[in-house]
Simulated assay, not measured.
Amino acid sequence: MTIKNKVISLLENAFGKTGKVLEVRAWNPATFFEVDVHFPDMKMEKWDKVQHIKVRVAEGIYRDYTPACWDVETSTCTLFIDAQHEGPGSKWASSLKKGDTIVYVGVGPTFHQPTTNSAMISLGDMSSIGHYLALQQLAKEQPLVGAITIAEEHHRREFNEYLDWNIGAIAQQDFGGYSALANWIETNDLTTATVYITGHIPTCVQLRKRIKQLNTQPKSIKVQGFWQ
C-alpha cells in the first residue's frame, strides 16, 4: 500500500461513510455502468459545483466518481462508471449489485461549475458522462452542447437513446479520443463560449493546446483530467 493510500485508509477509519446500492444497470457490452446509490449523509442541497466522491474499490485503493442526477429529498444519486480499462475500479464496478454497501471518505468540488454569461461547450470521453450530467443539472435550463467520444457503436446508440441532451456521441478513433474531438472543434464555432474538457489527461492537454491555436478563441477553457 502506498503512503497516500495508507493516509486515506486512516481517514476512512476516522471519517468514512457509507451508501447503499439501489440498482445497477449495465450498458451492452457491460463495460459501462449506471449505479443508483442512497447516500444518507450527503448534503446535496449545498452543491454549486460538480462534485467527486472518493470511493473505496479495494483494500487501500480508492477512485473518484461523480455523483450525478441527484435528488436532495431522497439523498440519492447515480454514478456513471466507465469500466473499459482493466484495474481495481473496473473490477469493483463490474461486481456491484443491488444491496451492496459503498464506502467513501469524502465529497469535494471539482473546478467545474456552470457559467451564465456564455454558451457552454463540453468535450470528453466516456468517463465524462456523469461529470457533464452533473454540470447540466447545475446549469438547469441553460443547455450544454458538445461531444463525447465513445468507441463501441452499441454504446453510442444507448447514449443517444438514454440521454436526452444536446451533447452528441461521436466515434472514438484513437486512445483518449483526441482525433474525433479535434475534428469536432474545428467544425464548430467556439467563439465567446466557455469550453469544458474532461477525461484522458494527455488528450485534455492536447485538446486545450489545439483550441488555443484556432482563430475562434473561446471565452475560457476549463480542464479537468480524470485518467492517464
Rank of each mutant, 00 (worst) to 15 (best):
G106S: 12
I197Q: 01
K140G: 02
G99Q: 12
S128H: 06
T198Q: 06
W184A: 04
H131S: 06
N188K: 13
S75C: 14
R208D: 07
D82E: 14
Q206N: 11
V223P: 00
L11I: 15
G130K: 04
T18K: 10
P114D: 04
G146M: 05
L181V: 09
P109T: 14
D71G: 03
S90F: 05
G146Y: 01
K91A: 15
T198M: 00
L163E: 01
T66D: 02
G108Y: 13
Y62K: 00
Q173N: 13
K17D: 09
T78N: 02
T78F: 02
E152P: 04
M42I: 11
A58E: 15
I3P: 08
L207K: 04
M126F: 09
Q113A: 08
A83P: 01
A93C: 10
W92M: 10
S127A: 15
G89N: 01
Y178T: 03
T192K: 13
D164Q: 13
N188M: 08
Q213G: 06
D64H: 13
Q206L: 12
M1F: 15
A180Q: 06
G168N: 12
L22Q: 14
P218S: 08
K43P: 05
T110A: 05
V72Y: 09
L214F: 08
E45S: 15
V72N: 12
P202K: 03
T76G: 00
D48Y: 09
I129Q: 07
D82Q: 11
K212M: 13
E152H: 12
S94T: 10
G177Q: 02
A171Y: 09
G146K: 00
Y65I: 06
I167Q: 08
T192E: 12
E59C: 09
G177L: 08
D64Y: 11
E45M: 08
Y62V: 04
P88K: 06
Y162P: 01
G19D: 03
V195F: 02
Q206C: 07
P40D: 09
Y62C: 04
V37T: 07
T115Q: 11
C204H: 04
A14H: 08
L79F: 09
K209F: 14
E158R: 08
H154E: 13
P202F: 05
E86F: 12
V107G: 03
Q51I: 00
L214G: 06
C69L: 10
M120E: 02
P88C: 00
D100R: 07
I170S: 04
W47M: 11
R156L: 03
Q137R: 00
L11E: 03
P109Q: 14
H112N: 14
G87W: 04
I148H: 00
D48L: 10
K17I: 07
A171N: 10
K49Y: 14
I81C: 05
G19C: 05
F159Y: 14
G60L: 02
A169S: 12
G124Q: 04
H155C: 03
H112D: 10
T78R: 05
W165V: 02
G225D: 07
L10Y: 12
K98M: 10
K43E: 14
T74N: 07
L163S: 00
K91Q: 15
Y132P: 02
